[in-house]
Computed example of a mutant assay.
Amino acid sequence: MLTVDFRRLPVGPGLRVLDLGCGGGRHAFEVLRRGADVVAFDQDADELKSVAAMFAAMETAGEAPPEATADTVTGDALAMPFPDASFDRVIAAEVLEHIPDDMAAMREIHRVLKPGGVAAVTVPSFLPERVCWALSEAYHTAPGGHVRVYTLAELKAKLKATGLRVGPHHHAHGLHTPYWWLKCAVGVDDDDHPLVKAYHRLLVWDIMKRPALTRIAESALNPLIGKSVVVYVRKPA
C-alpha cells in the first residue's frame, strides 16, 4: 500500500533515494523495483533487519534490476549520518507526526537533498486525525505515537521555512479512515472486534484485488477524508 504517487516523485536508474523512517519498507521496495539506489533509514534496528531480508529476497527473485542497490541504515532523523546533498529524492512517509522537533527533521531533509532534488512528505490528514484523537486517548498517547495533528497550511509553512519550495499535494487512503475511526471507537487494541475484523478483511481484499468500484470510491473519498496528505517539495537548484 503506497502513499506516495511515483508519477509525482519519479525514481529510476541513476537516482539515489532515501526512505526516511522507512518502517516496514513499503516505499523502499517500490523504489528498488523501479531501479533506483535506495537507502532505507530508520531508528528501529529490528525492523530494518526485516527490510534487509526483503531486499535480499527481491534480488534473488529477480524483482530488482541488477544495477540497483539497496542498503539499510539505523539512525536518528534529527542527525542523519549522510553528507550534505547525498540524495536525489527523499521520502518521509508518516514520520514527522512522531517527532517532537519536527523542524529539525525537515532541516535534515533539506540538508541531504541535492540541489534540484525532490522530496515527498506525508502525514495524517487533519480531519481524520482529529476525529481519531477525539475518539481515543490511547491512539495518540502510546509510546512512539503521534505528538501533533498537522493542518495542511502548517505543514507547508514549516517545509517552506527550511528553504524547500512547496509544490503540489494530494490525499490518500480514504477507505482506511473509517477503519481507524472504528478502531478508536471500540478500542485501538481490540483487533478481534467483529466490525474491525470485517473492515480489515475488506481492506486486505481491496489491496490485493484493486477492483474498479473501490478505486472509484477511494478517489471520491480522498479529498474529503483521505487518511494521509502528501506534499511534494523541491530543493532550489
Rank of each mutant, 00 (worst) to 15 (best):
G117C: 11
F87Q: 09
M208D: 06
H98N: 07
V229P: 00
E47D: 10
G117M: 07
A157R: 00
D101K: 07
D190E: 11
V39N: 01
V38M: 13
E108R: 03
H146P: 02
A79Y: 12
G23Q: 02
V196Q: 04
V51T: 04
G116A: 12
A45H: 05
G167R: 04
Y179A: 05
R234N: 05
E30G: 02
T74E: 06
A40I: 06
R16E: 15
V121D: 00
W181M: 04
V73Q: 08
P100H: 02
P143S: 03
M208I: 15
D101E: 11
G14S: 10
V39P: 07
P100E: 12
A68Q: 02
V147E: 13
D19Q: 02
L113F: 14
E63T: 00
V90C: 09
F126S: 03
V149N: 10
L18R: 02
P194Q: 10
A28R: 09
H169N: 12
P128Y: 10
L175I: 11
A157P: 08
V73R: 09
H173E: 14
P236Y: 03
G21I: 04
A161P: 04
V11A: 12
V233G: 00
T69S: 14
G117T: 02
H171K: 12
I216C: 14
P128E: 05
R165D: 08
P168V: 10
M80P: 08
H170W: 14
G12D: 08
R8Y: 13
L18A: 03
A120E: 00
A64R: 15
V188I: 14
V147W: 13
H193Y: 09
E97S: 01
H169Y: 13
K183G: 03
R234A: 06
V166Q: 01
A45V: 01
V186Q: 08
P13N: 11
S219H: 14
A64E: 06
L32P: 07
P81D: 05
I91K: 03
A79T: 11
D192V: 15
R215D: 15
